[in-house]
């Protein structure tokens, strides 16, 4: 078992078009590192210049928003699903 990461359309150019990626990770920070290792360029998409989660990316661990858990330190385990959601907005 591994952590399944759901990839939004805008990041699929980094994952060969795949909408899900499976990897081993213990925290969201770890997961970002693993994503970067397997799909270079992903870290820059997910983290802001201060090293925190980009304010326009929502990260859900199963059904919980990681921003309201421990942000990058939120723990993940085998069998969890992590969903990356870009904010959708405009004018």
């Amino acid at each position: 078992m591994a952590v399944e990461v759901r990839i939004p359309t805008v990041f699929r150019k980094f994952t060969d078009g795949n909408s899900t990626v499976s990897l081993e990770a213990g925290t969201i920070a770890d997961l970002v590192d693993q994503l970067e290792a397997a799909h270079p360029g992903m870290r820059e998409q997910l983290l802001a210049s201060d090293g925190q989660l980009h304010r326009f990316v929502n990260v859900y661990v199963n059904d919980e928003d990681a921003r309201y858990l421990d942000k990058l330190d939120t723990k993940v385990a085998d069998g969890d699903t992590v969903s990356l959601l870009p904010s959708v907005a405009g004018g």
């Binding site: 759901r6 909408s19 929502n58 859900y60 059904d63 928003d65 969903s83 959601l85 904010s87 959708v88 907005a89 405009g90 004018g91």
Partner: peptide
């Protein structure tokens, strides 16, 4: 003059779509 999706609602719909 602006719109934004509620992230929780958006998450629920993305899940439903998937």
């Amino acid at each position: 003059v602006r719109y934004s999706l509620d992230p929780k609602e958006q998450f629920a719909v993305y899940k439903r779509i998937e």
